[in-house]
Amino acid sequence: MKVDQFIVIMVSLLSSVSLLVIVSLGLALAFGMMGVINMAHGEFLMLGAYFTITAVNAGIVLPVAILISAIAMGGLGMVIERIVLRQLYGRIWATMLATWGLSLLIVGVVQLVFGTSSNGIPTPLSTIHLGGYMLSQYSLVLIALAGVLIATTYLVFARTPYGTMARAAASLPEMAAAVGINVSRVNMITFGIASALAGLGGGLLAPLSGVSPTFGQGYIGDAFMTVVVGGASPLLGASTASLLLGGIYAGVSNIVSPVAGTLALLLVSMLVLRFLPTGLTGLWRKARQ
C-alpha cells in the first residue's frame, strides 16, 4: 500500500468516526443524562438540515446557518420537553412511543411544508491534493469539529455549575431537589442541549447529503447502534463506540466492500453486547469498582 493511499484510508476512517459522533452525540446525551430514548432523534437531525438549507438559500453563510439551526432546535427541544417528555419521566416505553409518534408528525409536517424534495446546498471548501488522491476539506473540518464537540460537551458537563447540577439531577433527582436544584428546569435545559446537538449535526451533514423528509432514517440506525454499544455514559460511550464502530466500518469497507463493512459493524456490536450488556462504558465502570 502506498503512503498516499494509506493516509487517505486513515482520513476516511476518521471521517466515518466523526460522522458517528456527530449523529449520535445528542441521542447519547438525552439517553445517558435523562434516560430518554428519543425515537425522533433522526427527525431532529433532519430538521437541523432543513433549517440550515433554508437559511443558506435565504442568503445566510453556512456556519451561521448551522448555528441558527442548532439554536432553533435547542428551543424546539425545550418546548418538546415541556409539552411531551416531562409528563413521561421514568416511563421508558411511554417515552419511546411518544417520541416515535413525534417523529412521524415531524416527517409529515416537513413533507407538507417543504414537499418531497429540497433545494440542496453545495459542499463548501475545496479539495487537498495528496499524491494521486484528493481529500475533501469539508470532511477534514468535520473530523476536527467532532473533536471540538466532544471536548465542549465534556467541559460543559464537567466544569460548569450547570453541568454539576445536571449530573446531580440525572443520578439522584430527589437529593438534587432537596439541595435546592430545580430538577425540572435542569432537565429542560439538558434536553435542549441534546436537541441543539442534533440540530447542529443535521446542519453539518446537510452539505454532504441529499436532504429529504426521510433524511433522518438514514442516520438513526447508526446513531442508535453507537449509543447502545457505548452504554450509559454519554460522552465516553459515544466517543469510544464511534471510534470502534466507525473504525471497523470504514476499515472493512475500504479493504473488502461496504457490505462487508456493515456486516462487520453489526457483528462487532453483537459481540460487544453479548459480553458487555451495558455497553463499552460498562467495562470502564466494572474496572473502577
Binding site: S15, S16, S209, S253, S257, P258
Partner: peptide, 11 residues
C-alpha cells in the same frame, strides 16, 4: 441505507 460513501470514493 448507506449514507457514508467514503470507501467507494477512495476506490
Amino acid at each position: 441505507d448507506q449514507t457514508d460513501f467514503g470507501s467507494s470514493i477512495n476506490n
